[in-house]
Each structure stands twice: as C-alpha cells, then as structure tokens.
Computed example of a mutant assay.
Amino acid sequence: MEPREARKPAGPWTVVMAGASGLIGGALAGSLEADGHRVVRLVRREPHGPGEVRWAPASGRLDPAVLDGCDAVVNLAGAGVGDRRWTEAYKREIRDSRVLGTTALAGAVAAAGRPPEVFLNGSAIGYYGETGDRPVDESAPPGRGFLPELSVEWEAAAAPARDAGVRTVLARTGLVVARQGGAWGRLFPLFRAGLGGRLGDGRQYWSFVALRDEVAALRHLLFSPGLEGPFNVTAPSPATNREVTAAMARVLRRPAVFAVPAPVLRAVLGGMSQDVLGSARVLPARLLESGFAFSCPDVESAVRSALRD
C-alpha cells in the first residue's frame, strides 16, 4: 500500500480531551496547542478557566452540548494500571474509569447536534493478553483474563459513536518509554542507581513505544480521514525484558546485574505482576500500512529519546 499523508487541517481544530493531565494526554495536548489547535480539557474538579469543562465520568453521561461543533474528541482517561496493587476495589476503579467514561463520551458524541469528525478512544495491548513469543497484530482475537476482558468492554463502550457515523479510532497503546511516568518512569531511577536488572526470566516480550512516537501516531490517527477501528500503537520491534535491560544499561552506562525473581514480583505486585512478567509480542501492522513512520523503532532509540525529551 502506498503511504498516505496524514491530513493537514485547513485551520485550527478544537479538540475536546479527557485524560489531558496524564502522561500521554498531557504530551498530546501540548503538541496540538503548539501547532495552534484549541484543546478543551474535561476535568473532574472545578474548572480553572475557559479551556476546561467539568464532567462526571462515573455517571456514564455527558451533556452533548459540550461537544457540539468540536472537530475531535479524544479519550485517554483511566486510573493507572500500575499505580497500586490490584485489590478487587482497585480493579473496579480501573474498569469503571475507562468503561463509564467512554460510555459517557461516546453517547455524547452520538447525540451532538454537530458531531465531531473523529472520536479517538484509548485502549491497550492488554487486549491480546499473554502471547508468549507469538507475534500478533490487530487481526488477533482478545486474550483471557482481567486486562483482555477490560479492553474488550472498554472498546465496546465506544460503539455508539461509530454507530452514529462518526469515525472512531481505538488506539491500543503499549508500554510508553518516558521518564515522566508509566513503567519506564520507574525503571530510569533504578538503572541510574545501578539497581536495574531483568524481571523474572527476562524472556517475556515488552511491546513498547517512545512517547514522541505515541504522540505522533495519535496525531496521525486524528488527522487521517480514512483511518478507523483498532490500531496497535507499539514500536515495530518488540524487545524481550533481557534486551530492555541490556539497552538501559548501555544507554545509562550502569551495570545491570540484579534480577528480581518472578515469585517475589508476584508477592509484591499481586495481579499487576502480569503486566511485567507477561509476554505480549504486539506488532503495529495497521499503523505501518497506513504510512506511519516511527522515529524510534527499537528499544535503544526509544530510551535515548526519553532522555532527550
């Protein structure tokens, strides 16, 4: 397929965004505003100015008038999967923060008098569950377990927008390589202190994406009118945990001699341990077919990018 250029908007867009205070949302909002687009942030507290609108995602409803006339709606909201131990209560919070918020936004998109051109909804490669060393792309079925079941429900909640004729994109994001947060935000201080090392046996695949490529991919999906449905937002070369450990050691020039046994991780992290011990070898087939080019296609370039940004 011939590469397609992302559409260059004729003028500034108005983008309504949920989750703009998070790692990915903050970077995307900043990138859009730097190019002259207007970002309206949905917040759960009292608004601090005209660029913020209060909403209550737990209600599952949002006044459609909030979205009337905007060009795009982006939903990247959700409680952090790795922020706390997975108690039953926190698993409910992880689920509700995604499914109820998406339900509210998709319903409002469908009911808006002048609906947006595109609804871009976050999702995750957790959709595929454990894949071992078997590569999977967007054609693969969902896996089993909490994260795959959550991802299926999360994506299904976006259906009202699609059914109303609004171009709907599902961005299945991998592990974001950044110093500011996420899994890698915890790895950098450990490796700088010389305490980094492999997790478990180190053979599990981590499907990662540099933060700058994450933002560029989301913009590509926003501004390319022919793109809809699920897209894996991961670098084209998933790396094993051993390869990640070696790359971090090389770039930071620190030894990586420590290893955390799998039983210890399971005892400390509970259900969340599957996020670091599980193996997901996910490929961005549809993103590559659409003409998107990664600036950081391998783990070492992604780590170096994180140190520069």
Score class of each variant (00 low, 15 high):
Asp68Leu: 06
Ala72Gln: 02
Ala72Ser: 10
Val73Ser: 04
Asn75His: 11
Leu76Lys: 01
Leu76Ala: 07
Val81His: 09
Val81Lys: 03
Trp86Val: 05
Tyr90Leu: 08
Lys91Gly: 01
Lys91Cys: 03
Glu93Ile: 11
Glu93Ser: 15
Glu93Phe: 11
Arg95Gly: 13
Arg95Pro: 14
Arg95Ala: 14
Ser97Arg: 06
Ser97Thr: 10
Arg98Gln: 11
Arg98Gly: 08
Val99Ile: 14
Gly101Glu: 02
Gly101Asn: 01
Leu105Ala: 08
Ala106Ser: 05
Ala106Val: 10
Gly107Tyr: 02
Ala111Met: 11
Arg114Cys: 02
Pro116Gln: 10
Pro116Trp: 06
Pro116Thr: 05
Pro116Arg: 06
Phe119Glu: 06
Gly122Phe: 01
Ser123Ile: 07
Ser123Gln: 02
Ala124Asn: 04
Gly126Ala: 08
Gly126Phe: 07
Tyr128Thr: 11
Gly129Val: 13
Gly129Ala: 13
Glu130Tyr: 15
Pro135Ala: 06
Val136Leu: 08
Asp137Phe: 04
Asp137Tyr: 05
Glu138Ile: 06
Glu138Trp: 09
Ser139Val: 13
Ala140Asn: 08
Ala140Trp: 06
Pro141Val: 09
Gly143Gln: 04
Gly145Thr: 03
Gly145Pro: 01
Pro148Thr: 11
Pro148Met: 01
Ser151Phe: 13
Ser151Lys: 07
Glu153Cys: 12
Glu153Pro: 06
